[in-house]
């Protein structure tokens, strides 16, 4: 069963010509309907995330300023990120949609959640908008779950590093953040040596891959680097920052993934979901509408065992040695972090 938020393009959050555009939600909707799930789709109405729900990960001053900025007419928050008069409400509903989907999954104890909202969230920092993102949707839901005592795994397969999410849980041992991303690329963070703060050593896993990398490289790195840490962490919930800009047709990155690779990634994620109703995916990037449609269909088809059309998974691209290199860089960084923590405990 698919639990999805009420899909809306949110046309009032738009900057003409900007790639983060309303039609993206339409592409997701087309991808979902191509699966012919019929009565197996449950649509939940979002609420506007409350200040308390947002303040788990965002600073109050930022929330005040973002609201005021939008109500003053909006504009460009930085060279990439826009806001309109309506963006504040739309962003609150986007964050609330994640909470509503998680609540519905919890209530049913069954299904897979997909939160198809815009603007995306994983670049949004506690106190700043960035990279098309205003509020960090996946982080708002992860923090809500963590506050209920859950151990939350976040897998971020967007082509960009989710710097906002990483920083929000940098020192929080309740959340394990795993990101595969192209490097170098915006936002310039996410090297393998970033392994978490002193209270959460080994709770951040970054797998940077070079331009031209293919799905097999991501799969091997996830198996060899992330899987043992995920096993030990033993998550009770799994959230995915599902960006589709790592697709080879996407204009924002240089990875060579196909729709079939997203099915492969989804199957890997499913293996670590501890129980039915404990998996929700959040739309992040994905700017080629056709790639977005087919990749969402492949992701959800794989998770729901529904037939789908997808290109063959990609293989043989750049960065074949990524897994070994990341493992070694992390080993050194983890040793240093653990030594620093011991020094702190001694003092």
């Amino acid at each position: 069963m698919l639990i999805v938020n009420e899909l809306t393009e949110n046309a009032a959050h738009e900057d003409p010509g900007h790639p983060e555009r309303p039609e993206r939600v339409g592409a997701v909707a087309a991808g979902i309907s191509s699966l012919h799930l019929g009565g197996d789709v449950v649509s939940v109405a979002p609420h506007r995330a409350t200040r308390a729900e947002l303040a788990r990960v965002h600073d109050g001053i930022y929330l005040d300023e973002l609201g005021a900025y939008c109500y003053a007419g909006g504009g460009n928050l930085d060279e990439d990120t826009y806001a309109t008069y309506d963006s504040w409400a739309i962003a609150q509903f986007a964050a609330g949609a994640g909470l509503a989907v998680v609540d519905e999954l919890t209530r049913r104890g069954d299904g897979v959640g997909f939160v198809a909202v815009r603007p995306p969230g994983h670049h949004a920092l506690a106190d700043r908008a960035m990279g098309f993102c205003l509020l960090n949707n996946v982080a708002v839901s992860a923090a809500a779950l963590a506050d209920r005592g859950e151990r939350v795994l976040i897998v971020d397969w967007d082509v960009h590093h989710g710097n906002g999410t990483q920083s929000m849980f940098w020192n929080d041992p309740r959340v394990l953040y795993v990101s595969t991303h192209q490097w170098p690329l915006f936002p310039g963070t996410g090297v393998a040596q970033e392994v978490g703060g002193l209270d959460a050593v080994d709770r951040t896993i970054n797998i940077p891959v070079p331009p031209g990398a293919t799905g097999d490289t991501l799969a091997r790195a996830l198996d060899e680097v992330a899987a043992p840490v995920i096993d030990e962490f033993d998550p009770t919930w799994v959230l995915v920052s599902a960006g589709y800009d790592a697709h080879r047709a996407d204009p924002m990155g240089d990875l060579l993934l196909t729709s079939g690779d997203f099915a492969m990634l989804a199957r890997r994620v499913r293996e670590v979901v501890p129980a039915p109703g404990r998996l929700a995916l959040f739309l992040e990037g994905g700017y080629n509408l056709e790639a977005l449609r087919t990749s969402v269909a492949a992701t959800l088809g794989a998770l729901l065992d529904a037939p789908f059309d997808a290109a063959a998974p990609s293989a043989g691209g750049a960065g074949g040695d990524v897994a070994a290199r990341v493992r070694e860089q992390r080993r050194v960084a983890l040793d240093q972090a653990r030594a620093a923590r011991e020094r702190e405990e001694d003092e």
Binding site: A68, A72, N76
Partner: peptide, 13 residues
């Protein structure tokens, strides 16, 4: 764009 607000100004950020 909006004087008095920190947001939207690289130099003030």
């Amino acid at each position: 764009k909006h004087p008095g607000l920190l947001l939207g100004s690289t130099s003030l950020e």
